[in-house]
Design a protein around this nucleic acid. Structure first.
Lengths: 114, 114
DNA sequence: GCGCCATATCACTCCTCGCTGATATGTTGT
DNA sequence: ACAACATATCAGCGAGGAGTGATATGGCGC
């Protein structure tokens, strides 16, 4: 039973970690940032983010599967948009936190600096 | 100059990504989660998270450098605590987002499922 | 139907990061 | 000063994920 509790606890943690990982990539953040302003088609995202088209598609697939963005077909375009305002909330939270810890984050070299 | 703008923009994105990466690990989330309840010394964190002691220390160093936790020496113990309430806010908001997208996140196999 | 544009998929490589085991530093009692 | 406990550091290994290039699918206009 303690085992059960542990499982449930760790399952929750794993889910959180997985969701955070969805945000923990510059390319995906660039895509999400662009979509926060307005819905965009893939080729528009390619222009603005300066990422390769397959790369953008791959990330969109990931974001779509995770439910962070949604897509609507429009003719031969596919328009992507932020699926839920809570995504934006989270992005704002991280900026608010960065206001406080930006210096430390940049100094931390436990993982590769950008 | 457009170059400058791009640099500034991407620097912001990189910082966000780096901060998100700080949260994108089950071990660090377990540590942060435990610290959300109460400040704890390292050996207590080892007990509760069931991680190895060097592992916990490594993650704490990372979290400390990033400014997400703070530490106070107390005798031969070192007590760690959440450094800023915005950390807790972020953790809560991620749970709020999970309420909506949990299913999708679990289904997404672009990166390894826990 | 054919060519064109928009998007998706796949195999592969490289790099980053997390964990472990051994060891070093530090602090407290006796 | 020494023993015991608490914490930090470091090298090395292994795995997961991001990017690329080539290619496949799908919708549109002529």
């Amino acid at each position: 039973m303690a085992q059960l509790v542990d499982d449930r606890k760790s399952a929750t943690i794993e889910r959180r970690a997985k969701l955070f990982r969805g945000f923990a990539d510059p390319s995906r953040l660039a895509i999400l940032g662009a979509l926060c302003n307005e819905p965009l088609a893939v080729h528009e995202l390619v222009e603005r983010t300066e990422l390769s088209q397959p790369n953008v598609s791959n990330h969109l697939r990931c974001l779509l599967d995770c439910g962070l963005v949604a897509s609507d077909r429009e003719g031969r375009f596919i328009r992507y948009r932020i699926s839920n305002p809570r995504v934006t909330v989270l992005l704002n939270d991280v900026d608010a936190l960065l206001d406080v810890v930006a210096k430390g984050v940049e100094a931390c070299d436990n993982y590769r600096e950008a």
